[in-house]
Design a protein around this nucleic acid. Structure first.
Length: 220
DNA sequence: ACGAGGATGCTCT
DNA sequence: GAGCATCCTCGTG
């Protein structure tokens, strides 16, 4: 049994202030950066999990790497969005979870005002609270860093799956994002290109906290 | 340290 | 049928 370090505990406020829906109803790049340092809070029957978001990627409507891209092209011709990515055109602050490679779930948060597509992929987290539970949820992890230093890994550690797709994360419930004790200094944000995509490779739409030990491996 | 390959299922990017 | 917003294991040096 390991105790939470003083450093980690000090990041979590005494009472959680859930980030409101308006926060997400902005430009996706702005939201992707603003989410760095915020807290992902998951309520399970077994207890509460809290992690800090340390790496994100932005996916925009006119971006060929975005799942909404084709639907957005059709929207310009007057056709309604359909299929898996239709949710990206809907209400901001709603989760978008999908199965990738038939193996891992990836967790996004819908951005932009209703009617405009966009999402932020959560790529890495720093576990703060409930670490023993996270280890059980992700038994392959041989270090604390490995619990959530990748989008597939963090979905496992935070117990996020298809059940959480379409979930409003701005409402009190079992999956929310909350403000940290103190806001991240914007000078701490590193901008880079996105990982694991074949289109839109050169767009600098990945963001992470400088020097953080929990960012995904391919970042370094 | 690093690269190749495989797992695995859904979407149609 | 192709292509994935990934991760792990096992081979080589």
């Amino acid at each position: 049994m390991r105790l939470i370090s003083r450093d980690k505990a000090s990041v979590i406020p005494a009472s959680l202030a859930i980030i409101p829906q308006e926060f997400y109803a902005r430009n996706t790049l702005v939201v992707a950066k603003a989410l760095l340092g915020t807290l992902l809070v998951r309520q399970l029957d077994g207890g509460t999990l809290v992690s800090r978001i340390v790496e994100t990627e932005a996916y925009l409507a006119d971006d060929p790497a975005c799942h909404a891209y084709a639907n957005n092209q059709r929207l310009k011709l007057g056709k309604m969005p359909s299929g898996r990515s239709a949710i990206l055109f809907g209400m901001p602050g709603v989760s978008y979870v999908y199965l990738n490679y038939g193996v891992y779930y990836l967790f996004n948060i819908v951005t932009e005002k209703n009617g405009v597509a966009g999402a932020v992929l959560i790529r890495a987290i720093e576990p703060l609270l409930g670490i023993e539970t996270m280890r059980k949820l992700r038994p392959q992890a041989r270090s604390e860093e490995a619990l959530g230093n990748g989008p597939g890994k963090l979905a496992l550690a935070m117990s996020i799956g298809l059940m959480q797709n379409g979930h409003p994360i701005y409402e009190a419930g079992d999956l929310v994002v909350a403000y940290p004790q103190k806001k991240l200094d914007s000078r701490q944000i590193v901008t880079a290109t996105r990982i694991g995509i074949s289109k839109g490779k050169d767009l600098p739409w990945r963001f992470y906290i400088k020097g953080n030990a929990y960012i995904s491996k391919a970042s370094r």
